[in-house]
């Protein structure tokens, strides 16, 4: 993605410089340059493919087989050990007409995505802006805020289970300082998902790093020009900073949206017996799918659920890509 972008950028720079010259001698030079650009582009393309080769090889040789198998399995009553009869669209029918938990799990997942994606994106940007200031010890702050992103998995969830503990947890103790009586978080069906979103917000360090890098790539000259024109801090932020980092915002939103739909571990670890919490409030799509696959051996049905999720996520991603064209600003200019 970035290589491709870079290629574009370079291309347009050359195009601009071309327009300024017009003599015949220059034309020849131009041809040569074009040739050079072309071969450069080829080389870059090749390098790009080489970089993603491990991925592609892994995909083709390790994942494609199981993937196609699961697509076929989704039309069967496959249970791993004793049966694999073709049942047509039976599994998909069951999903929409019979399995109430399918809807519950889809709703829970959507709820989580709809809130967690914007909140964590905004949180990461805000944090990056703060950490982009020139104050003493900024490197320490950056490390400090990035730290949670390094920690991951079950350890973090166990930590948060303690933090969110209704009466002795740090979160509710902190709230009580302001006279707020905190909710029961993981024990209260209305607050389980907000609790997870809060936890997610704690580890925005990864996204923050991306934003920080792109913030530092915004040319200083733009701010200087804006200052001369009398722009204030907010104007500079909304008119320069934000537009300049939209490609990274876009990237972040697309990937965290896809990632959001994958939420599983949190619910599996943080609910009693991994059953999806009080009143199924943390029964996420993947948890329901996992239960079907590995608790009940309904592998055929679980496969069809996996493919349904694929369709949903794919659709949303396509919509994202379409809408993205309207608001993502590439410095290079000629993005379609």
């Amino acid at each position: 993605m970035f290589i491709y972008e870079g290629g574009k950028k370079m291309d347009s720079v050359y195009v601009k410089s071309e327009n300024k010259k017009s003599s015949k001698a220059v034309k020849k030079q131009k041809m040569e340059k074009r040739h050079f650009i072309k071969s450069l582009r080829h080389r870059e393309e090749l390098a790009g493919y080489l970089f993603i080769a491990p991925w592609i090889i892994g995909f083709l040789f390790l994942m494609l087989g199981p993937l196609l198998f699961s697509l076929y399995a989704s039309f069967t009553n496959y249970n791993i050990t004793s049966q694999m009869k073709f049942v047509g669209f039976e599994n998909y029918k069951r999903m929409f007409t019979f399995d109430e938990l399918f809807w519950t799990s889809l709703w829970n997942t959507l709820y989580y995505v709809v809130f967690s994606v914007p909140i964590t994106t905004a949180g990461a940007i805000l944090l990056a802006v703060f950490l982009n200031q020139r104050v003493p010890g900024i490197k320490w702050y950056r490390t400090l805020f990035y730290l949670p992103a390094v920690l991951s998995g079950v350890g973090v969830y166990l930590l948060w289970m303690q933090l969110l503990s209704p009466s002795t947890g740090l979160v509710n103790i902190a709230l009580s300082w302001f006279g707020i009586e905190g909710p029961a978080w993981l024990y209260s069906p209305e607050w389980t998902k907000p609790a997870l979103i809060l936890m997610k917000l704690w580890s925005v360090g990864g996204g923050m790093l991306l934003y920080l890098a792109s913030l530092q790539g915004v040319p200083k000259t733009m701010y200087e020009a804006a200052e001369i024109d009398g722009a204030g801090t907010f104007q500079k932020f909304f008119k320069i900073t934000l537009p300049m980092i939209t490609p990274v915002i876009f990237f972040d939103i697309v990937t965290s949206l896809i990632g959001g739909f994958q939420i599983f571990q949190e619910a599996y670890v943080m609910t009693e017996n991994g059953d999806g919490g009080p009143v199924n409030s943390l029964l996420f799509y993947n948890l329901h799918m996992w239960n079907n696959a590995f608790e009940m051996f309904n592998m055929g049905y679980a496969s069809s659920m996996a493919w349904m999720l694929f369709v949903i996520v794919m659709l949303l991603t396509v919509i994202n890509l379409k809408i993205g064209k309207k608001w993502v600003y590439y410095e290079g200019g000629d993005q379609k």
Partner: peptide, 24 residues
């Protein structure tokens, strides 16, 4: 080419993330 590439990349991204659960 560019379009196909973007599509392929999206496809890989999505499927890659989706196939998190793998059998032992």
């Amino acid at each position: 080419m560019k379009k196909i590439f973007v599509w392929a990349l999206t496809l890989i991204m999505v499927t890659g993330l989706l196939s998190g659960c793998s059998e032992t």
